[in-house]
Design a protein around this nucleic acid. Sequence first.
DNA 1: ACCTGAACACCGTTCAAGT
DNA 2: ACCTGAACACCGTTCAAGT
Lengths: 230, 230
Amino acid sequence: MVLMATKTQRTERRTDALSKERIVEAAIEILDADGESALTFRALTTRLATGSGAIYWHVANKNDLLAATTNDVIARVMTDVASGAEPREAIRAIALGVFDAIDAHPWVGAQLSREPWQSAMLQIFESVGGQLQALGVPERAQFASASALVNYILGVAGQNAANARLLPRETDRTAFLATVAARWAQHDPAEYPFVHQVATQLSEHDDREQFLAGIDLILAGIGTIDPGSS
Amino acid sequence: MVLMATKTQRTERRTDALSKERIVEAAIEILDADGESALTFRALTTRLATGSGAIYWHVANKNDLLAATTNDVIARVMTDVASGAEPREAIRAIALGVFDAIDAHPWVGAQLSREPWQSAMLQIFESVGGQLQALGVPERAQFASASALVNYILGVAGQNAANARLLPRETDRTAFLATVAARWAQHDPAEYPFVHQVATQLSEHDDREQFLAGIDLILAGIGTIDPGSS
DNA sequence: ACCTGAACACCGTTCAAGT
DNA sequence: ACCTGAACACCGTTCAAGT
């Protein structure tokens, strides 16, 4: 195919032509490999063997580029998760999908908590909202319930992204949590009794389980809503 | 006092000597007046009539400075709120205090969701945790409950900060929400039925009330926890 | 001990010029 | 229509030199 095309190409562009997709793809690779600070237009131009102006032809600015990369990752999560399970399970699956995506691409977390009205967020909001309807949450409470869940997911997203930024590259999670727990334990117990008390639990806990426990707590709260007349 | 001191000052420094407090104070003024992007070391040196090196003598780097400013604002909120009300009311007061602080200083929201293990977060965590104990939440559930509440607050913090960044300076909130709602309504109803449906509610809702509704939802969830054997 | 400010090594973004 | 890359106007941070 490719060999044939070399002869008769006419309206076809060279296969490596720039496009927003190719730029986004390259940006994701850089972000995953070396983190947020490594994504510069200079790094992009080098990787794509082009000039900075070429990138600006396809992308408005860096914010636009970051929104596009985040959107890309979240869209993939949402299509993977779309299948029809029981609503409560579906919500947990959506939440875990986002959680795992941020675990795999920590920069997504930072971006999500920075640009909440962007398309990525809309997709999460839509998925969660749809499941709440399926769950039979009364209409007047759907918006607030979806917001609570999404805000919670957003909060954890930012937190996990920050952790990943602090983590000195591939440190294992338990070692990191032990460090934070030790720092917590150092605070004056008189001034920070609660922090002091839960410091041990911190080093033992499983981030992912804890995240899910929070989702379940909110779902339990939603379960207490009076179905009312609607 | 000051006049007298001018004669016999010895170990005293000139009253306008630099200090971390003075730098933090100036940073907060810049952030409040012109937003995150306005806080540069050059702007700081101009305002403080000094050199960049002088600032670095008191502050490790820009991250350190931002953490200190956030810590300052949150500390003020926590001492204002500390009074002993009923636990559930106290938690609502803490949450609203943080919410209002971010409303007044949007950059705090961005920073909170960026540096969750910092001192500012610890203070919120401690306050919330203490109230959960007073509420009689069983010990095994305290950590997860506090985390859920704090993560939720964190998520809203980031969202509000982002909104403030989008807001073209002192636009009123309802006008802004109407714009977002209009954008939501533009999406294909077939693809985004839920978003489409709640778009109207979005433009009518009160951010602050909605925030509190989420807190109440989580508190309701916490209320369903089996007290167990402790 | 604390401060000065020039210098360094970067950024994102623009734009005249090319194809 | 799409791409090139030099140039611009910034950054945060360092450091020799001053007091």
